[in-house]
Amino acid sequence: MRYAMAIDTKKCVGCSDCVVACQTENDVPIGFCRDWIVEVMDGSYPNLEMELRSERCNHCDNAPCVRCCPTGASHIEEGGVVKVKKHRCIGCGACIQSCPYDARYSHPEGYVDKCTFCYHRLVKGEKPACVSVCPTKCMYFGDLDDENSDVSIALRNRKHKVLAPEAGTKPHIFYLI
């Protein structure tokens, strides 16, 4: 099993619903977030192109954050989900430094927090909160090993990219372009 997400940059309108849904679902303290929207303007006037991206932890296959963690608090769950055990985390910040996507933050209580793909929902067979609230239905989530999952179908049918592939982390959030 390998969970992954594909996000359609052509459908996303940047409404931030996924951000708010995550904050609510995961009790993210005010002023912090586990996912965020990036608006990229490319080109030169008048030939501009805009891309909207909902970003979060990429649940990398070759995860530097897990490698550098001195206590093993950062670890990989079944299905490739990268998580932090808060009672093992000493808050050293090594994993924050190691993430090329800046997907982690220091929780006010001291431990490090990040996107979990809503692991507590996955085990119940539900989709992550961000995916289920998206009003444009631009996010596809599922198991890459299952060729009939939403994400496999989306990736099969559309051109896609990942962010900073040169960082070598093998990210698992795909952007449909």
Binding site: S16, V19, C33, W36, I37, E39, M41, G43, Y45
Partner: peptide
């Protein structure tokens, strides 16, 4: 000119 803006998150 290339520009990148954030509307949330960062």
């Amino acid at each position: 000119m290339k520009e990148e803006l954030f509307v949330s998150g960062r």
